[in-house]
């Protein structure tokens, strides 16, 4: 009976302490998560509050005028769009194929370790270094000049680790039983990958791809030496033309020239357009993913 008494008095105290610890930790986690959401909300609100007045039809459809103190940002929107599409075209196939190689083909060993090391280091390279690399390699060595092509290749190289990573994750999530079932029916490994594994992983692969590109879309450093110009009188006509781009335009308006204060609303307006584009892309990725998943369940 003695043990019963100890247990019952101890129990209340322990139970209370357990409960408090629980609530405390839970609260801590919740606050941490909220800070994330809050940070985004504050940024978006700040940009929105300061920028929305600058947004109008002229702003979205006209080039800058009067040494960039008036007019719009149309060429920059087009430029960023082209760079994104270019980066996507370059990086998506390479990234997805690399992911397939790493997850489906490569045998564990030294080569795989080196490749992985390379990819994770690529992800850690500062964006300005990518810019300098692009300048040295694409612009100068390969004689592409400051151009959409050089910028797209640089941005593409930068988004590769994200695309490879998400491809790998998506492929890992495909159950091995699919692979076994397919191989068991006399399919080759290649058939198994392209007819069963990749289709099942497509939602994840696409989402990762778009997120990677949208991340690159907002970068200034990689394009400032490779693709973007201060101001361009005409819209680009080929991939070898230089262009204006949103992030670089913000940078130019906010740091160069004598009219920094006057152009403040334009800076916020440009930032707002950039953020809208990036968030729009991310939203597209999320919608696409859930659509594809649903489709896969119903067909």
């Amino acid at each position: 009976m003695k043990s019963y008494a100890v247990e019952s008095t101890g129990n209340n105290y322990i139970r209370l302490r357990k409960k408090l610890t629980q609530s405390f930790c839970f609260m801590l986690f919740r606050i941490s998560a909220l800070i994330n959401g809050l940070a985004l909300a504050v940024i978006v609100y700040f940009i929105l509050a300061n920028g929305w007045k600058a947004i109008n039809w002229t702003f979205l459809t006209q080039p800058p005028m009067d040494s960039m103190t008036k007019g719009g940002i149309f060429p920059c929107i087009i430029g960023t769009l082209f760079l994104c599409i270019g980066a996507m075209v370059v990086a998506f196939p390479i990234g997805v194929f690399s992911g397939i190689y790493i997850n489906e083909y490569a045998k564990p060993g030294r080569i795989l370790r080196i490749i992985r090391l390379g990819i994770s280091n690529l992800a850690g390279v500062p964006s300005v270094v990518f810019g300098l690399f692009g300048l040295a390699f694409f612009v100068i060595y390969l004689k592409m000049g400051v151009s959409i092509l050089a910028g797209a290749l640089t941005l593409g190289a930068m988004s590769l680790p994200v695309i490879i990573g998400s491809t790998e994750e998506a492929l890992k999530a495909v159950p091995d039983t699919y692979r076994e079932a397919s191989l068991g029916l006399g399919a080759t490994k290649l058939q198994t990958i392209f007819r069963v594994v990749v289709p099942a992983a497509m939602p994840g692969i696409l989402t990762g791809g778009i997120l990677g590109i949208s991340r690159a879309a907002g970068e200034t450093a990689p394009i400032m030496f490779t693709a973007a110009v201060f101001s361009s009188p005409k819209l680009p006509e080929s991939v070898f033309d230089e262009i204006m781009a949103l992030p670089y335009h913000i940078y130019v308006l906010a740091t160069a020239g004598t009219e920094i204060e006057t152009t403040r609303p334009l800076q916020y307006g440009t930032a707002l357009v950039l953020i809208a584009m990036v968030l729009g892309m991310n939203l597209t990725a999320i919608i696409l993913r859930s659509r594809l998943r649903k489709k896969m369940r119903q067909i």
């Binding site: 076994e180 079932a181 397919s182 068991g184 006399g186 007819r195 099942a200 896969m296 067909i299």
Partner: peptide, 28 residues
């Protein structure tokens, strides 16, 4: 493997239609 069929522990149909599942082995 096309001469030796295999059925697994857990049912593992592909996320495809019923028809496509059966047709898969023929197509590959």
């Amino acid at each position: 493997r096309s001469r030796i069929g295999m059925v697994f522990q857990k049912p593992n149909p592909f996320p495809k239609t019923i028809f496509e599942n059966v047709a898969y082995g023929l197509k590959v």
